[in-house]
């Protein structure tokens, strides 16, 4: 227990409800408002799972995921995306991410996906 979860999304609304959906479930939650602060956080701290938006103003999601994999090999990744366009699908396939959710998604969906991903990687 007490897994560390990093939530990366440039939209405060999304960070807010995702972290509240996951709070009280024994996780330590951190949030990042964009790709670069997420990378900075990952350089300092170790996480058990990252939840990452794809379209962000500075560093795009796929780049963040690449860096995460270098900084913390084997870290499970859940992609949350506003569209399942061909380019998003390509990222999800190429990066071999552990899970993906299309916005809008509900709290139960993110909760069960996080649980499932953590269970698999333990």
């Amino acid at each position: 227990m007490n897994e560390r979860v990093l939530i990366i999304d440039d939209d405060e609304l999304v960070r807010n409800y995702v972290s509240r959906a996951l709070s009280g479930r024994g996780f330590t939650l951190e949030t990042a408002v964009n790709g670069s602060s997420a990378v900075a956080l990952m350089e300092k701290e170790k996480f058990d799972v990252i939840i990452c938006d794809l379209k962000m103003p500075d560093i795009q999601g796929d780049e963040v995921i690449k860096r995460a994999r270098v900084l913390q090999p084997g870290i499970p990744v859940i992609v949350i995306s506003g569209s399942m366009s061909e380019s998003s699908k390509a990222v999800i396939n190429e990066m071999k991410v552990e899970g993906a959710l299309l916005k809008p998604f509900g709290i139960d969906e993110i909760r069960s996906l996080v649980d499932e991903v953590l269970k698999k990687t333990q």
Partner: peptide, 9 residues
């Protein structure tokens, strides 16, 4: 999709 996601969540 972001605001909608927020409303739903």
């Amino acid at each position: 999709s972001n605001p909608l996601s927020g409303i739903l969540g």
